[in-house]
C-alpha cells in the first residue's frame, strides 16, 4: 500500500535504464524503430468529482486512471506517477484510506509506481470534497496525437458509452433507475500497449490518432479529432456499443448518450488495413470486450461529425454546448 506521507521527498527516474531495458525488448527487425530512443511524455490532471464515491469506484481510481489514460492514448507506457491531494478538514479517515487503496490498486494494475506525493488539509469551508492531482510520466516509441486522423481511417470505440456519466448522475441525484449500472473507470494501458506497436505493411504506425472520450463524451471527442485533423468523421448509430440501461436512462432523462462522460474508454483511429487486427486484440482484453468499429474518417464535411441513424438518414453530431436547447416545434 502506498502511503503518501512516505512520498513527499523528491524521487528519481532512471531514464537510461528504462531505455536500455526497452530497446532490448524491441524486435530488431522492426525497421522504422531501430534508432528511435522514444519520447518522454508528461501529463498532469486535477480530479474533482461529486460525490467522491460512486457505484463500484471512487475518485482515487479515477485520478490514477485519468492520468494513465492520458499517457496511454498518446501511445506512452506509464513510467511513474506523482500525486498531490487536497483534503477538506474533517474528511473521514476511513474514506481517505479507501481512496488511497483504490489508487494503489489502479496503479498496480498497469504496473506503474506512484513515486512522490503530497497531502494538504484545508479549512472545510474552503472546499467541500477531496481534490487529487496526478502527474504522469511515460515513454512512447512514437507519440500518438488526437490530430493525426486521415481520410479512410477506421474508428474503433473500445466499449459501451455513457456508463460512467449516467451511473454517477443517477447515484448523485438519487434517480431510481432500477439498474446495476456502474462506472467504467479503468486504467487502459494494458489494453492499448500491444496495439500501439502495430504497423502497416509499409511500416508506418497503424494507429493514427487516439483519445479518451471523457468530458464532452464521444460527441466532444470525435468533433475535436475531426477539427484538429481536418477530416470529416462519419459514424453508424447502430454500431455504437451502448448498454440498454444507459440508453433507456438517457431517454428518461432527455440526455444524449453521445455527450455523456466515460472514464474507461478510448477512441482509436486506425488504418483500414489494420482495423480488424486492432479490434480483435482490443476485444481480448476485459475492458475492450464490447469494442466495435463505429465509423471512419471522410474527405467530406471537414471538421464535422455525421451519424447515420437507424432510419437511414444522416445527422450532425454537434459538439456539446453544455446547454439543453429544445428544437422540436
Amino acid at each position: 500500500l502506498v502511503g503518501l506521507d512516505d512520498l513527499d521527498d523528491g524521487a528519481t527516474i532512471n531514464i537510461t535504464g528504462i531505455l536500455e531495458n526497452k530497446n532490448s525488448n524491441v524486435n530488431s527487425n522492426d525497421s522504422g524503430n531501430c534508432n528511435n530512443p522514444g519520447e518522454i511524455v508528461i501529463t498532469t490532471d486535477s480530479h474533482v468529482i461529486t460525490p467522491a464515491f460512486f457505484p463500484d469506484s471512487n475518485i482515487g481510481r479515477l485520478a490514477v486512471s485519468g492520468t494513465v489514460n492520458d499517457l496511454a492514448v498518446m501511445g506512452a507506457e506509464p513510467l511513474a506517477l506523482t500525486c498531490a491531494m487536497i483534503v477538506p478538514e474533517g474528511f473521514e479517515l476511513s474514506s481517505f484510506e479507501k481512496i488511497v487503496r483504490s489508487m494503489s490498486e489502479a496503479a498496480e494494475e498497469v504496473d506503474v509506481p506512484i513515486i512522490t506525493g503530497d497531502t494538504k488539509t484545508v479549512e472545510r469551508n474552503g472546499l467541500d470534497s477531496i481534490i487529487i492531482n496526478t502527474t504522469g510520466i511515460g515513454i512512447a516509441n512514437e507519440v500518438i496525437r488526437d490530430c493525426g486522423l486521415c481520410t479512410g481511417d477506421k474508428i474503433i470505440l473500445t466499449g459501451t458509452i455513457g456508463d460512467h456519466g449516467i451511473s454517477l448522475l443517477a447515484h448523485r441525484e438519487g434517480f431510481e433507475l432500477t439498474t446495476d449500472l456502474v462506472s467504467d473507470v479503468a486504467p487502459l494501458w494494458n489494453m492499448l500497449k500491444d496495439v500501439v506497436q502495430i504497423r502497416t505493411i509499409e511500416g508506418k504506425p497503424a494507429i493514427s490518432a487516439m483519445k479518451d472520450p471523457t468530458r464532452g463524451g464521444l460527441a466532444g471527442t470525435l468533433n475535436e479529432m475531426a477539427q484538429k485533423s481536418g477530416t470529416g468523421i462519419s459514424i453508424e448509430q447502430k454500431d455504437l456499443p451502448i448498454k440498454e440501461a444507459v440508453s433507456s436512462a438517457c431517454e428518461m432523462l432527455g440526455i444524449d448518450p453521445l455527450e455523456v462522460a466515460n472514464e474507461g474508454k478510448a477512441v482509436i483511429c486506425v488504418k483500414a488495413e489494420n482495423a480488424e487486427e486492432v479490434l480483435s486484440i482490443i476485444r481480448e482484453h476485459e475492458y475492450g470486450k464490447d469494442a466495435a468499429i463505429i465509423g471512419e474518417a471522410t474527405e467530406e464535411n471537414l471538421g464535422k461529425v455525421l451519424m447515420r441513424t437507424p432510419i437511414g438518414s444522416m445527422r450532425y453530431v454537434d459538439p456539446p454546448t453544455g446547454d439543453l436547447i429544445p428544437r422540436i416545434c
Binding site: L169, E173, G174, F175, E176, S248, M252
Partner: peptide, 21 residues
Amino acid sequence: RHGESERNVVLQQLERNVNLV
C-alpha cells in the same frame, strides 16, 4: 415509454432541477 420508473425519474428531475428547460 419506460413505464412507472420513468414517471418517478421525471418527478425526481422536477424535484432536483435536473435537465429541465
